[in-house]
Design a protein around this nucleic acid. Structure first.
Lengths: 211, 211
DNA sequence: GAAAAAACTGTACCTACGGTACAGCTTCGG
DNA sequence: CCGAAGCTGTACCGTAGGTACAGTTTTTTC
């Protein structure tokens, strides 16, 4: 009997469900969704096929749950990271720059490199998923654009940027650098590449608002 | 005769082989490698399963041939694009900036957006492939880094950049922006996003070498 | 224009996987 | 101690990747 307070006390099934999602996330990021078999997931978790289908009505439900959990976690990570950066800094530009530095350090500390972005993985296999899942992907991405765009607006109010840049594009560029950085990290087998790319983006922002 | 794995130069089979690769590239970029069935490819091309296995000894040989063709084509595209830009411009910085502008315009002219980068797709499914294919991926990426790094070196000789940036990182950033831009384009369904991101990278380069 | 090589087709068969259906067992909270 | 939640076991179906190999047509070459 685990007396740990960490256990969410609710249902036992939630723990199994999370284990399935853990195994699925790892596998999907390494082999793609179609390349991930239910049989291998149940082998990792130690349940039967029936057990799997108790939690997810089909593979599509797994795909959706996986993405939902991923988005929620990334949201929480961004919330945590940039709100901490804000506390340390009154100035919106410095706050964002500090947040990016923290993000870069967080990424640099991943010993085996970033495991991969589910949004990116799903984009490259989007015909496997239904409308609902693709819309979830789009909405999450637009939400992150909005989040960073809001910060850029606050920065631009104090530090007028050059008129010819669209701040939505600048906001997008962080996601672009993150997703592209993950891919290049994987491609060349350099676990620190991603963190350095984030620092280059930070560099660009400094130029844009201060030069 | 085994043949199959290497293109029979000028024979008729090469056309069929290319059709298979065309169908495979489209399918792999939309559904992933494991999600692409041989049955669907032969249906598109109009051959039988035996015909497929005449050209490729197994699905792995298809994966390798697909990547090899993709890399060769991208290499040719970069060669063509930047050598044309060089002809128009003596100065290495201006030449690169012109090349990036041309690249951006080329990407903007794709009516349905960029179909996707096979390197990226393979990175997100790399456990499906053997050592040989993964090394092919790595070598191609390092080759592109080298290519752009050489240009940056020539630029830096004339326009000394700030000392704190690593030119390998700056070279990588073009690939990062391209791959990340493709993903974000797909995620938000904006076919022009990628072209604008390339222009942002161009903007960063201008800053870096001229400011 | 015939022989040889290339480019296939057809058939048969095997295993793995996604998915369905459903009956039964076990564990745990109220 | 009851009922729901959380499973297990069994059996079965269609599709896909893959193997094997004999036979046929088409193309190239001399």
């Amino acid at each position: 009997m685990v007396s740990g307070m960490n256990a969410p006390a609710s249902r036992k099934g939630a723990a199994t469900r999370d284990q399935i999602l853990d195994a699925a996330e790892t596998a999907v990021l390494a082999k793609g969704f179609a390349g991930t078999s239910i049989d291998e997931l149940i082998a990792v978790v130690g349940i039967t096929k029936s057990g799997f289908f108790y939690h997810f009505k089909d593979k599509g439900a797994l795909a959706k749950a996986l993405l939902e959990r991923y988005i929620a976690r990334e949201d929480a990570l961004f919330d945590d990271l940039f709100s901490r950066a804000d506390e340390l800094n009154e100035d919106p530009l410095h706050g964002f720059l500090v947040g990016l530095k923290m993000l870069s350090e967080l990424l640099a500390d991943l010993p085996t490199g970033h495991p991969g972005c589910l949004i990116a993985a799903y984009c490259y296999q989007d015909r496997l998923f239904d409308r609902e899942v693709r819309e979830l992907n789009t909405r999450a991405t637009l939400g992150w654009r909005r989040r960073f765009r809001d910060r850029l607006d606050r920065i631009a109010a104090r530090y007028p940027p050059r008129a010819d840049v669209d701040l939505d594009d600048v906001a997008d560029m962080l996601l672009v650098v993150a997703d592209g950085g993950i891919i290049l990290s994987k491609a060349v087998g350099d676990t620190s590449l991603l963190a350095r790319q984030v620092m280059l983006y930070r560099d660009y922002l400094r130029h844009l608002f201060q030069a």
